[in-house]
Design a protein around this nucleic acid. Structure first.
Lengths: 339, 339
DNA sequence: CTGAAAGCGCTAACAC
DNA sequence: GTGTTAGCGCTTTCAG
């Protein structure tokens, strides 16, 4: 079923049918109604491909995230979706599983699909892929830091100063032997968090022996194991900064099993996952503006697509994460908090 | 940049260029290489729309889920993605927020985009919308029960018997006054869970007063509130079946605050969210085969798309959920379990 | 093995 | 207000 059939049944030319769809104000009420009726009868839907063969925009944007099961990424996605909906756009969502090859793959597939734009979250993109992407002539926005901040629109958050604030807080509450558990992915986030931690420690002249820095995959199980290792150290840390809530959940588990209290070993997570407010002791953590990051990236992207903003003047927008203090750091005065 | 330019630069006809792309075996090595080189130089990508104007398949499928922030739905999505990748297909993911209007909206948008197929998760679709969908001539598969099981391919799980098993287990461990907290969405899942609970209770001649059935939105906070209400009842329940882990987390929180043990009030959740293994007491729950449901639905859909299976002989595939017993039901012999 | 030419279904000048 | 017609970039007969 195509425009021709509709035109025939309605006794008009295909142009008129096309106009009913695209410029209804150019068609008389009478003809319009006739055509609409026929369309309805025939259950006609214009062929999307024929349509976009002429028009440039496709109303589809691509979105790359490392993992669909991580709350933060899905919050970002929700933010993008909010904006995309306003712009009448759909999102092709691709999950790279933190695999650079899959990332490359998806970038190729997506740009070939003539999407209007692309949002890449925590990309592990290298120079070569970046140049390839640029040459594709598809507007894109990065979420999370990359090595190409000068050359590409980027929305990110202050992982470094947020981590610094967290460790600063630990120090202020009297902790002296602070350990750090980093996640293996994404690289840049963890690098920044470590930088922030170091800055706070240095400022107060506190040491950070290498043995106090652990790396783990981002699961509760690995958090549990890493935390166990720290507890077994000759000199037990009195506080642990853990780069993700997910790992911190495992740590809290171990803390409880070892019959330790936050006063003995404080735990700080990162991400502000919902469940952190439900476990005991409730997790002190860093809230990231994920949803807003998604919206911001979406707006930025559509500004470029709609040429309201030049693509050759890349912006970096930094949204603020901030510390959310709960019981896992042992503040006795906060014991009454519910959420 | 189009096929014509490539043809000119390579000194061949556009037909040859097209063949290099689609039927390389029909072109001599020499010409092929020449063309490929030019393509590379010009960074040529065939126009996706022109291409699919002739070909029927678009290699995009749509996927509707109620909420991108719920682990189960994203696990399903991951399963679908797995299959889609094998079939070289992308997924347009749309989140309906449990809003039937958004669902209708998205179905319209997606089918207009000439997708190859559509997977609808926990749809709240009514007769009218269902007929509209069918008339669109886009293959589709439902995940989760609907009122159209006889007419549409469906992948679902045994919510009823799984809930029955859970309650049966509670009864076997000596519980007599069992309460139920249901989630407001999705309707059919909760209906089935209730049915299962009732069946188990009935079998053992146990009563289920209406006051023992609560409904809540699917958040820890609402689980907390619902559970608090139950604790405040004149006769306190000795076990609570909660329709989702998310709500159960709030319940466990309240349980701890009230200084009650699972031996006094047992708690069973549903979904097997990861964090359930980390909270204390660890949550007894029902594991759903979400990932496999996604894969199964994906395979079913592609069978129809590739016409390996007729669209007019709808199948219903039921995958099995099963009980996962942990400490929140007070089994003392299981106290040593770690995960 | 290669090329010319006819469309795919639609939009957008351009005429009337 | 409406119709005619020339493409959009590609695939695919059909001829060579």
């Amino acid at each position: 079923m195509n425009i021709k059939e509709v035109a025939e049944k309605a006794g008009v030319s295909i142009t008129t049918v096309s106009r009913v769809l695209n410029n209804p104000e150019m068609v008389s009420e009478k003809t319009k109604n006739k055509v609409l009726t026929v369309m309805d009868q025939l259950n006609y839907t214009p062929n999307w491909f024929a349509r976009h063969l002429q028009k440039s925009r496709t109303n589809v944007i691509g979105m790359l995230i490392p993992d669909t099961l991580e709350q933060s990424y899905m919050e970002i996605t929700k933010g993008v979706e909010k904006i995309a909906r306003q712009k009448n756009c759909s999102i092709i969502l691709c999950s790279t599983e933190f695999d650079p090859d899959m990332e490359t793959d998806y970038i190729t597939t997506l740009t070939e699909r003539s999407i209007d734009g692309l949002i890449l979250t925590s990309p592990s993109i290298d120079r070569k892929q970046f140049d390839r992407l640029k040459s594709r002539d598809v507007p894109f926005v990065f979420i999370g830091k990359t090595g190409f901040m000068e050359e590409a629109n980027t929305v990110c958050t202050n992982n470094d100063t947020a981590a610094e604030e967290a460790v600063e807080y630990l120090i202020q509450s009297g902790r002296k032997n602070i350990a750090i558990v980093l996640s293996n992915h994404p690289k840049s986030d963890n690098h920044d968090k470590l930088t922030g931690c170091k800055r706070a420690l240095q400022k107060h002249g506190l040491p950070l022996p290498d043995s106090n820095i652990l790396h783990a995959d981002n699961t509760p199980e690995n958090g549990y194991i890493a935390f166990s290792k720290l507890l077994d150290m000759p000199v037990r840390p009195d506080a642990v900064f853990i780069a993700t809530d997910t790992m911190a959940f495992g740590a809290i588990e171990k803390l409880n099993q070892a019959n330790l209290t936050p006063d003995e070993v404080a735990v700080i997570g990162f991400d502000d996952l919902k469940v952190g407010a439900v476990i005991e002791p409730k997790l002190t953590t860093v809230t990231k503006p994920s949803y807003r990051m998604g919206m911001t990236a979406g707006r930025l992207l559509f500004d470029i697509i709609e040429e309201e903003s030049a693509d050759d003047d890349p912006q970096t927008i930094v949204l603020q994460s901030r510390l959310k203090i709960r019981k896992s750091c042992g503040n006795k005065e906060r014991l009454k908090e519910i959420w």
